[in-house]
Simulated assay, not measured.
Amino acid sequence: MAKNQRTKTNEKTNVKRSGTGKIRFFDYSLLAVLICLVCFGLVMLYSTSAYSAMVTYGDSMHYFKRQIVFCVAGFAGMFIVARIDYHYYIKWAKGIYYISIFLMLLVKTPLGKEVNGAKRWIRLPFDQQLQPSEIAKIAVILFIPVLICTMGKEITTLQGMARVVMWGGFSAACVLFLTDNLSTAIIVMGITCIMIFVVHPKTKLFVILAVAGATAAIVGARLLGMAMETSGNFRLRRILVWLDPEKYASDGGYQIMQALYAIGSGGFFGKGLGNSAQKMIIPEVQNDMILSIICEELGVFGAIIVLVLFGMLLYRLLFIAQNAPDLYGSLVVSGIFGHIALQVILNVMVVINLIPTTGITLPFISYGGTSVLFLMAEMGIALGVSRKIKIAE
């Protein structure tokens, strides 16, 4: 009877005995939230892209079928990565960092592929493409913790922080100048700063810098908006559109205006799944503007559900980071946490026009094969760290 009771207890807690007086942990909660996000994303992707896929390809399931293939491949890869001891990454992290730089250099060669006016991809066989900036994110997540761990207490000094920022900044600069992707460069730099923040004993300095930086960016954007109305630079034009989308509705502001109409027309409970009207006119709506269609079809309630799911995902990542067996594992998961959090926050802010359009997609929900594969790889790394957590009986 007692033996049966112990077996039931172990099944409920989803842990295994390690034979050393401790219990091995695996974060099934993270896996469950991830499955919910991916399944929700597939449903919304089909609802959002069916019309445009039919018009463009003659197949309403074109985007859905491609995405589901990448999701299945991503889950398979995630389980493989989860079984790898994350300490092996310490040896290969620097090499992965340099490989990411090399792949971004290839974008400037004839292998580079231009899509919708942006040259950010590498041509692959069988009509596939790879976005090297996605590899840069993982490279920074794996390599920056190695630097921090080898530096020890030096990271608390100005010189130590500058050294780490230099490596992260170089990767971000390559993303910006080699792939012309400002939004991803911001994320790469943000991941670096978050990991420094995690290990630094003083938080006041970072809070002051963050507030000062945000204030300077807002003031600078408004000053540029007033001074550069005749500029032809597309990034400056995005700032102008952000400041006054109605004025530039026919010249760059069309997408954001239609997205705002979609959000406003959805109300609290939405029009119903599949009943969006704006998805027929918003360009590339299955990418960075998919949240606006979620709001139109499912209302604010649907958007809240999405944000709650992301909150649960981030909470599980935070739990793993706090309980990781060593500093390297903790920093790697903190980097993954920072990546997901930054991407979600920036995407939501773009959709509701709090910041200029960036092209950042909503993780696990927006269409994109490369993005899904590398996000799943990051989840595999986090689950691999969770497998090393041991809980005392």
Results as ranks from 00 to 15, higher is better:
181 N>D: 05
5 Q>W: 12
222 R>V: 07
379 M>D: 12
108 K>G: 12
35 I>R: 05
346 L>H: 03
86 Y>A: 00
74 G>L: 14
152 G>P: 04
249 A>F: 15
329 G>V: 01
286 Q>K: 13
248 Y>A: 06
184 T>M: 08
326 D>G: 00
131 Q>E: 06
325 P>I: 10
163 R>Q: 10
83 R>P: 08
85 D>E: 10
329 G>H: 00
340 I>H: 04
51 Y>W: 13
133 S>R: 02
194 I>N: 08
229 E>G: 14
382 A>G: 01
63 Y>T: 08
80 I>N: 05
274 G>A: 13
2 A>P: 10
188 V>F: 00
333 V>F: 02
40 F>K: 07
386 S>H: 08
32 A>W: 07
289 M>D: 10
15 V>T: 12
64 F>K: 11
220 G>E: 02
94 K>V: 15
86 Y>W: 02
46 Y>I: 14
393 E>V: 10
89 Y>A: 12
149 C>V: 11
378 E>V: 11
251 D>W: 14
88 Y>V: 14
309 L>T: 11
357 T>W: 02
69 V>L: 11
367 Y>D: 08
201 P>M: 06
45 L>C: 09
55 V>F: 14
1 M>S: 11
51 Y>F: 15
326 D>I: 04
48 T>E: 04
48 T>D: 05
29 S>P: 05
235 R>Q: 15
387 R>T: 05
98 Y>T: 00
206 F>I: 01
66 R>T: 08
182 L>A: 05
328 Y>C: 04
199 V>S: 09
110 P>G: 12
170 F>I: 14
217 A>M: 15
17 R>T: 11
36 C>M: 15
355 I>F: 07
138 I>C: 08
158 L>C: 13
273 L>P: 03
44 M>Q: 12
18 S>T: 11
393 E>M: 09
309 L>D: 09
342 L>R: 05
5 Q>F: 14
334 S>G: 03
300 V>G: 09
132 P>T: 04
191 I>N: 01
144 I>C: 01
349 M>N: 00
32 A>E: 04
355 I>N: 05
25 F>L: 08
71 C>V: 15
72 V>G: 13
332 V>G: 03
177 F>T: 12
231 S>F: 15
66 R>D: 06
280 M>P: 10
218 I>A: 10
294 I>D: 07
227 A>G: 12
57 Y>V: 11
217 A>C: 15
227 A>T: 14
220 G>I: 03
138 I>N: 02
358 T>S: 04
69 V>I: 13
248 Y>W: 09
33 V>K: 05
93 A>C: 02
129 Q>A: 14
266 G>P: 01
393 E>N: 13
140 V>G: 03
284 E>T: 10
130 L>G: 00
309 L>A: 10
149 C>N: 07
189 M>C: 04
103 L>P: 00
127 D>N: 14
299 G>S: 01
